[in-house]
């Protein structure tokens, strides 16, 4: 709108536009501030440990030796478990909601999945710690150990809490988001394409795998990144059940730590500057990881436009 293109429209419009612009500016500055401040507050540990911080397994507040590897490992493994479980499940649920269920059922099941998304992280943590982990310890893990104990994945005492329950709970938290996006992607396939496939005698599965998925491949990848971003940063649920142990082990039964859980657990204990700085640097690493995933997701999904669930 040309500012000043008429006397009466002049001032109100200029003021209003300025107000909105200012807000947007504040927004961006806040974001930049986060990045800047994280970097600034970790300079102590960056100076002391350098890049070695990223692959040092140490974590000893007494000797003042800190390394991010155990936390990074925990983040990556729990996320991996979560994605391996959640992605196929989401695809299946999206398929159910769009192709298989009658419209009314699809709507209600959709609502239920949405509710799952709304449950706060700490509630997942409570349920995980007091109910799910003991359940795993008593009924699932011994079973797994009996049949898979020869592999490195199921060694050690079945305590319930640990990498496995963290991964499964993460999967439950990621599931509603990824299935919602996938559902939208599926429902955006033009009916014409699907009808053409069915008309040739394809089964539901064949239509889905060969037409729908291929058509929506980009959107599905976007869903993947969305879920990934969520899983990496999830804090409270993981903190409750991952066991708070700075060790690296191949066994899924073992306790561990993710970056987020380390921060949550140890923050109040960090008494000296180096300890604190190391924790902040951990935060910086997590920030960088999230930023990377978010950037990829943003530009990937942007091509699909707003209607494909660019935001959840």
């Amino acid at each position: 709108m040309k500012i000043g293109s008429g006397k009466h429209t002049g001032y109100g419009d200029v003021l209003f536009k300025a107000a909105t612009f200012l807000s947007a500016l504040i927004f961006s500055l806040a974001m930049a501030g986060v990045a800047f401040e994280l970097a600034r507050s970790s300079r102590l540990s960056i100076a002391k440990f350098g890049f070695g911080f990223l692959w040092s397994q140490a974590w000893n507040p007494v000797t003042q030796d800190f390394g991010a590897l155990s936390s990074i490992y925990g983040t990556l493994v729990s996320t991996l478990i979560a994605m391996v479980i959640a992605i196929p499940l989401s695809l299946a649920i999206a398929l159910f909601l769009v192709e298989l269920a009658p419209p009314a059922l699809s709507r209600w099941v959709g609502y239920a999945i949405e509710l799952l998304a709304a449950i706060p992280s700490i509630i997942f943590g409570m349920w995980g710690l007091f109910v799910f982990a003991p359940f795993l310890a008593d009924h699932v893990q011994p079973f797994l150990q009996k049949f898979g104990g020869f592999t490195p994945f199921f060694k050690g005492p079945p305590m319930g809490i640990g990498m496995m329950s963290a991964g499964i709970i993460l999967a439950l938290m990621v599931l509603p988001f990824t299935s919602a996006v996938m559902r939208e992607v599926f429902s955006m396939t033009p009916p014409v394409l699907k009808e053409a496939a069915y008309g040739m005698g394809a089964t539901t599965w064949e239509t889905t795998s060969k037409v729908t998925v291929r058509f929506g491949a980009k959107g599905l990848m976007g869903a993947f990144f969305l879920g990934l971003g969520r899983a990496i940063g999830e804090t409270m649920a993981v903190t409750f059940v991952i066991g708070n142990n700075h060790s690296i082990s191949a066994s899924l039964f073992s306790a561990g730590n993710s970056i987020a859980s380390t921060l949550a657990n140890e923050f109040t204990e960090a008494s000296d500057p180096l300890y604190l700085s190391s924790l902040v640097e951990l935060g910086l690493v997590l920030f960088a990881m999230t930023l990377l995933v978010q950037t990829i997701a943003h530009f990937w999904l942007r091509h699909l436009g707003k209607t494909t669930g660019g935001r959840q």
Binding site: L38, I232, T235
Partner: peptide, 28 residues
Amino acid sequence: TFASLVRFTVNVMMGLPSIITGLFVYTM
């Protein structure tokens, strides 16, 4: 470009782990 930047910022902030922003407010 400014609008695109802001839009990107909104998306990133939405996906930012809340513990990171907590850390930021702590230092500030």
